[in-house]
Computed example of a mutant assay.
Amino acid sequence: MGMDAHVDTLRPHVHTEAADIVRLQTILARRVLLIFALPLLVIAVLGAYAYRLSNRVQTLEVAQRNDEALRRINVVERIMQKYPTQAWAIHEYEEVAKEYPHPQVLVRLGALYYGDGRPEKALAVLDAAKARDPTYWEIYSTAAYMYLDQGRIEPAIAAGEHALTLNPWDAQTYNNLAWLYTTQAEVRDLAKAQAYISNAIDYTRGRDPNTLSTLETLLEAYAETGQIDRALETLEEALTRVGRYGTAPASLYRRLDALREQQASVWKE
């Protein structure tokens, strides 16, 4: 047997030993990985669970505080309906706002301040509500009323129109702006006022006396400018709208008769 044959007989043994070494290294590597990586994996999983649990606890605590705040608000509003004690209600809402400064709470607090003769503080609270949620429509609706009450026409219109872009079903703001567009010479727009009154009637189902009062004011404005036909058309349309939801007030029918008499006298002339 030559040298080549001897080498050939050794090759299988060499290959076997090399394979054994590779397998041994693989086994050792896996064990090292299990020894060091598994605890790290366990720590990571437990850490993630603890983080989620902490967030869940915080969420539940916030929800609990919010529920308590809402219950307190409901109690305050029920008491206010029977015993309108302004100072006490302001104190209660101030306490609620500390724990639950939701824009709705701040808007209500601002309205209470305004009713208590503190308009600057009321508007400051509305600004705080706006900083928390600039898309909350009631901030602007309430501001529009306050500006209107102060005779600040331009900011009232700006706030009111913005409120309607955020909530196109805000009947109170439609009514307030209709009154402005009817009574204020510098911004008078009777056609726009008529459209806004129609919306207010629809969204209150014809039951808001303030809207019907604004309608009366609009009819007077039409009559004063000699637009009797337009006044009649507006009133007849309003009566149709109100009639969808119930019986219109007798005062509107008396106004209808008066306008028809005016129209007849104009035709005679």
Rank of each mutant, 00 (worst) to 15 (best):
Met146Arg: 01
Pro101Lys: 04
Ala144Ser: 15
Pro168Phe: 07
Gly117Val: 07
Leu38Ile: 15
Gly117Asp: 08
Leu40Tyr: 08
Pro39Thr: 02
Gly115Met: 07
Glu138His: 11
Val57Phe: 08
Trp88Glu: 12
Leu28Arg: 14
Asp8Gly: 15
Pro119Thr: 06
Leu126Ala: 06
Tyr51Gln: 07
Tyr49His: 07
Thr240Arg: 12
Thr211Leu: 01
Tyr174Leu: 03
Ala159Glu: 09
Tyr51Asn: 05
Ala195Glu: 12
Lys98Glu: 11
His162Ala: 06
Ala231Gln: 13
Gln25Ala: 13
Ala223Leu: 09
Leu126Tyr: 14
Arg56Lys: 11
Gln25Leu: 13
Leu166Ile: 10
Leu53Ile: 01
Arg11Met: 12
Ile27Arg: 14
Asp202Arg: 12
Tyr114Leu: 04
Asn210Leu: 09
His6Thr: 11
Pro155Asp: 03
Tyr83Gly: 00
Glu269Leu: 10
Ala111Glu: 13
Ile139Arg: 08
Thr16Ala: 15
Ile201Phe: 04
Ala193His: 00
Arg152Asp: 15
Pro209Leu: 06
Glu61Arg: 14
Pro103Cys: 05
Lys98Ile: 10
Ala156Glu: 04
Ala250Tyr: 08
Tyr174Pro: 03
Thr183Arg: 11
Leu33Trp: 11
Met3Trp: 14
Gln104Ala: 14
Glu233Leu: 13
Leu218Cys: 05
Gln58Pro: 01
Ala44Lys: 10
Lys82Ile: 09
Val76Met: 02
Ala193Arg: 00
Glu216Ile: 02
Asn66Val: 11
Gln25Gly: 12
Leu33Val: 05
Glu68His: 08
Glu237Gly: 10
Ala143Asn: 01
Asn55Val: 01
Tyr93Ile: 02
Ala131Thr: 12
Tyr174Lys: 05
Thr247Glu: 13
Leu28Glu: 15
Thr225Tyr: 05
Leu190His: 03
Ala264Asp: 10
Val14His: 07
Gln227Glu: 15
Trp169Arg: 13
Ala159Met: 11
Gln227Lys: 15
Ala122Cys: 10
Gln25His: 11
Ala122Asn: 09
Tyr147Leu: 03
Ile21Tyr: 09
Arg205Thr: 14
Thr183Phe: 00
His13Met: 12
Asp149Ser: 15
Leu232His: 05
Thr142Ser: 14
Ile153Trp: 04
Asn167Lys: 12
Asp257Glu: 13
Ala69Phe: 00
Met146Gln: 09
Asp229Gly: 15
Asp67Lys: 11
Leu33Asp: 11
Ile157Phe: 05
Tyr114Gln: 06
Ala44Tyr: 13
Ala231Cys: 12
Trp88Phe: 10
Lys268His: 10
Arg56Phe: 08
Arg230Ser: 13
Ala185Asp: 11
Asp4Ile: 14
Ala111Thr: 08
Pro84Trp: 03
Leu60Trp: 06
Pro103His: 05
Leu218Lys: 08
Leu235Asp: 08
Glu99Ser: 14
Glu95Arg: 14
Ala131Ile: 05
Trp267Asn: 14
Arg118Cys: 00
Val42Lys: 00
Thr225Cys: 01
Leu166Val: 09
Pro39Glu: 04
